[in-house]
Deep mutational scan, measured.
Amino acid sequence: MATDAALRRLLRLHRTEIAVAVDSAFPLLHALADHDVVPEDKFQETLHLKEKEGCPQAFHALLSWLLTQDSTAILDFWRVLFKDYNLERYGRLQPILDSFPKDVDLSQPRKGRKPPAVPKALVPPPRLPTKRKASEEARAAAPAALTPRGTASPGSQLKAKPPKKPESSAEQQRLPLGNGIQTMSASVQRAVAMSSGDVPGARGAVEGILIQQVFESGGSKKCIQVGGEFYTPSKFEDSGSGKNKARSSSGPKPLVRAKGAQGAAPGGGEARLGQQGSVPAPLALPSDPQLHQKNEDECAVCRDGGELICCDGCPRAFHLACLSPPLREIPSGTWRCSSCLQATVQEVQPRAEEPRPQEPPVETPLPPGLRSAGEEVRGPPGEPLAGMDTTLVYKHLPAPPSAAPLPGLDSSALHPLLCVGPEGQQNLAPGARCGVCGDGTDVLRCTHCAAAFHWRCHFPAGTSRPGTGLRCRSCSGDVTPAPVEGVLAPSPARLAPGPAKDDTASHEPALH
């Protein structure tokens, strides 16, 4: 009773807030009518008042009428009001819900409408889902798969039609296919003929059939049928067999079959498995989609049935006599038709004709302190090069084509190399640097090759510096006499390219 009084008091307290929050009759008014909170006449009256005075006034009048009803109607109103779709449509209802007392429970059932309790003993237990329907569909599909699609060729003596089998029958139906081979029951999904010589313990000319048996419980189990008994694959494991010639990621696949039913060829011909030897223990289905393919039931050349050999690369099948050149017997292992072999060759040939990528240039590290003349020119003028003790990398590039010797140069053309002071002394051009340390401070000019250098860098042994005729380390061993002091540049003949010694390969005349 306390809860009923509290709900009535809360409705009177929030009546105006609810009326202002509800700006549309749908969905709240319609939901109240659906849950029998508002009768039909009051529903029509509220809609009429909404058209006349507006939605807030109409709902305020409806809530005032609701306060005169019993506690069950008020409880049902609060339940409908706080439904998710009403809270989404009328956003101003959320503060009312947040301020609702926590001790007021809106989930209690309506009085007088409590459903009768059902004894637990009368409640049926839930049924577990079964796979009976899938099993029945598999039974119905198996006879259809064994139905012949056409008439065999005159040369083929193997013609068999499976008798119709009602689904209610649980007995196995067997077809006489000759040579002791028996087909599987209607619940078998796949059958492959297997030679009895590969099964340990088999006697006589009995041949087993590799099947997948579907049981009534819905589970499946792969086994071997020899005669009327089934054997699990673990009985046929043979770890010492060295003649297993397995197909790549293979499961067994029928390579020879008669049109209309699988079996042995007439005249004692023995149908073979995809792999010879003992049956392997793992009978998992292969991951290669080509091995799941269903080959055609007629020859791809003459479009006739009979004894066919199936290609492992495509769905086509052929007569042995229709092949070019014809085959006398079934080859062992994987067999592919000429079209598949030709496609494989065409895929391999473009790969062989692809040009080989060019090898990157060989990189040879230079000892610290040495650099090529090109690196000396590329440096920024007026700045010493940083990191001189790091190992430089010199790339061996292809030799350029031989060019004509340089033409003779006048001494005026070499004027930018040297600057003559007032006393006739050779001065260095701006930006000249030593080729060893890279520093341009207090550098000297070689009178023979006009290269800038430090005496301490080229002659670290402490050799005394002569007063005139300074030469760098590369030119100090040259027998050519030094030019007379005061000459602007060496003779043009000295600039012609010539053979250089091994220790002077990195010091070429550089223009500054």
Rank of each mutant, 00 (worst) to 15 (best):
I74F: 01
K133S: 04
G228A: 04
V123Q: 14
G208N: 01
L13F: 11
N86M: 14
P163G: 06
S187I: 05
A144T: 10
G204N: 04
L28V: 02
D70A: 01
G54C: 02
S24F: 02
A25L: 12
L66Q: 03
H14L: 01
L49V: 04
R8N: 00
F230K: 04
F82L: 02
V188W: 05
G208H: 01
R149G: 06
V206P: 07
Q57R: 06
F59W: 03
R113G: 07
A261W: 14
T68V: 05
L146D: 15
H35E: 00
F77D: 01
E229W: 01
V22W: 01
S248L: 11
E40D: 04
S99C: 11
P119L: 08
H35L: 01
G150P: 08
I74R: 01
E51R: 03
H30T: 01
S168N: 05
S220G: 07
P109L: 07
K102M: 05
V20T: 02
P200A: 06
P129S: 06
F59S: 03
E137N: 02
I224T: 05
D34F: 03
W65R: 00
Q94R: 15
S220I: 04
E207S: 04
P39L: 01
F230A: 05
A271C: 10
I74E: 00
F236P: 03
P154V: 04
D238M: 08
D238V: 13
L273W: 14
A138K: 08
P254A: 08
L62P: 00
Q157A: 12
S248D: 13
V256H: 08
N244Y: 13
Q189I: 02
K111R: 07
G240S: 11
I181E: 02
P148K: 01
L175Y: 15
P162W: 13
E171V: 15
P109T: 15
Q225M: 01
G267H: 14
D76R: 04
K159R: 15
V118C: 13
Q182P: 03
L67E: 00
A152H: 07
E207T: 03
A145M: 04
G112Y: 08
G204V: 02
P124K: 05
E167I: 13
A117F: 10
E88W: 07
T3L: 13
Q172K: 08
P266A: 10
R92W: 02
K102C: 09
L128K: 01
L63A: 02
T72S: 06
A202Y: 12
L67G: 01
R247A: 06
A61S: 15
A21R: 01
T151W: 15
D23P: 00
R247G: 05
L128V: 12
Q213P: 05
Q262C: 09
R8H: 00
E40G: 01
R92P: 01
Q108A: 02
K42H: 02
E167K: 06
P154S: 06
E171N: 11
V206W: 03
A140I: 15
